[in-house]
């Protein structure tokens, strides 16, 4: 795998508040301090309202923190930028552009399309959508659209790729395929990956480290190191052990008595 030197994120004393419609203040994130190393695959997992999407949006520069700072490779983040690509849960493709034009969008905006024209076709091939260059978004299935969204973010060769529950709207089979494709892309490019997910199995399958977050107050409850080689089999004892640990932290292990072992 490519060992990158860029894509190091430092988060210091982060605090983000929201004002609810009824005037009450809600603390979305409080006193968050983490260091995401270059080329790492990080998952953020936690129940709704624990601030994980907020954290991602702060990283993307779409909102500003109330206290504290982010920096990417030593440069403070103040707004959005192509070096931090973002993939939403909804592919949000531009409906007036074809698949090819959607992916080429980032290059055209930065006026480097003519030099990097070849990249567009490379990425179309990478996400397996050859032959669909001239299709419009409304003609694509959910999985295909999400792949276009991935390629669109990647064409800018970002240092960091932020993914907000990218596979949440897909069926189980497509989801597993996309996870493998994402791993392949990650291993080839060495982009730092920060992914928000609801799916514990997905987090364990993909990540180097998992930030387990909990709400009220919103914070990172625990950071889990996943020290398993890849590819990971979802039925290995280590896998299941981590799963139980995480579910316990998230307090979803079930309300019945503790189970020691199965026969």
């Amino acid at each position: 795998m490519v060992k990158p030197s860029t894509g190091n994120i430092l988060v210091e004393n982060l605090r983000k508040e929201f004002v609810r419609p009824d005037g009450q203040k809600v603390v979305a994130l409080n006193n968050v301090n983490v260091n995401i190393k270059a080329g790492e695959f990080i998952s953020l997992i936690g129940p709704s309202g624990c601030g994980k999407s907020t954290f991602l949006r702060l990283l993307a520069g779409l909102t500003q923190p109330d206290e504290g700072s982010f920096s990417l490779d030593g440069v403070t983040i103040t707004g959005p930028g192509y070096e931090r690509g973002l993939v939403f849960q909804d592919p949000t493709l531009f409906p007036w552009l074809t698949v090819y034009e959607n992916i080429a969008f980032g290059l055209k905006i930065r006026n480097i399309y003519h030099e990097k024209k070849k990249d567009v076709q490379d990425f179309i091939r990478l996400v397996g959508l050859e032959g669909f260059e001239k299709a419009y978004p409304h003609q694509l299935s959910g999985g295909m659209a999400q792949r276009v969204a991935l390629a669109r973010a990647l064409v800018n060769h970002p240092k960091v790729l932020l993914l907000d529950e990218p596979f949440g709207a897909l069926d189980a089979f497509t989801r597993m395929n996309m996870q493998d494709e994402l791993l392949k892309i990650w291993q080839e490019r060495g982009t730092t990956m920060v992914m928000v997910t609801h799916d514990v199995d997905e987090a364990i399958y993909l990540s180097d480290r998992i930030f387990v977050m909990s709400p009220r107050p919103a914070r990172i409850a625990s950071i889990i190191n996943v020290e398993m080689g890849r590819p990971r089999a979802r039925d290995l004892p280590d896998f299941l052990r981590l799963r139980a640990i995480i579910l316990q932290i998230l307090d979803f292990a079930g309300k019945h008595e503790e189970i020691q072992y199965y026969l």
Partner: peptide, 26 residues
């Protein structure tokens, strides 16, 4: 969300008006 996505792809204000808002409003 169209504007947010375009920001993360490097779009500045002029781009957002001409390349996102205008085609979307067409």
């Amino acid at each position: 969300s169209y504007f947010e996505v375009s920001s993360t792809l490097g779009a500045k204000t002029l781009h957002k008006i001409l390349k996102v808002a205008l085609p979307a409003a067409a």
